[in-house]
């Protein structure tokens, strides 16, 4: 699992708007077979319908256990994008295959503080996903303030999916890499 932040000077907003999530995600590796791309506005409430579609699609293409992992990853990343992304930009979900892995990519724009938190959380999960997951469950059991990290922790700990983050200016792409 990697957590990367591009250190280049941020591109202009106009330049960013010309770049799709696929452009950013394609920088992660060659020989990708794109399977699915969906984008919607943050105010949308299509998570249930989108989840049902992803489940149906992945169950046709993969073993049930793999389909379940992809569906969980797609749901939680997309829901996070809707919840924490900029209200003025689209949230995009993409599924692709690359060298024996399924890549679940969610791209959206967010304020720098949100991106920083996301990068930090992914880095934490890289160190010890099980402990972070248990901490999130414990935080809820003991009545602590829930953080929006249970979903990411489930992706890594429960589904065994690797997460990486690529940020460029206000655009952030989170990729879940699931062995197919």
């Amino acid at each position: 699992m990697s957590s990367r932040v591009n250190s280049d000077p941020p591109p202009s907003r106009a330049a960013l708007s010309r770049r799709s999530g696929a452009d950013l995600a394609n920088a992660l590796g060659p020989q990708r077979l794109e399977l699915l791309r969906v984008a919607c506005s943050p105010g949308s409430s299509i998570t249930e319908e989108l989840h049902a579609f992803v489940v149906a699609f992945t169950k046709l293409r993969y073993r049930p256990a793999v389909a379940d992992r992809i569906a969980l990853t797609a749901y939680e990343l997309f829901a996070n994008g809707l919840s924490y992304g900029s209200i003025s930009s689209m949230v995009a979900l993409e599924l692709a295959e690359e060298q024996g892995f399924v890549l679940v990519t969610v791209t959206n724009e967010a304020i720098q503080a949100r991106i920083k938190v996301l990068v930090e959380r992914c880095a934490l999960l890289r160190t010890d996903a099980k402990s972070i997951y248990m901490e999130e469950i414990r935080r809820n059991v003991t009545g602590g303030i829930p953080r929006a990290m249970l979903g990411l922790a489930r992706i890594v700990h429960e589904a065994g999916v690797e997460l990486s983050v690529v940020a460029q200016g206000s655009a952030v792409t989170v990729v879940g890499r699931c062995k197919s």
Binding site: T47, H51, D68, L72, Y75, V141, L150, G151
Partner: peptide, 16 residues
């Protein structure tokens, strides 16, 4: 067959 993380919290709340 599937619950999101918000739904996991429902069961945690019940236990609480």
């Amino acid at each position: 067959t599937f619950v999101n993380s918000s739904a996991v919290r429902l069961f945690i709340d019940w236990a609480m």
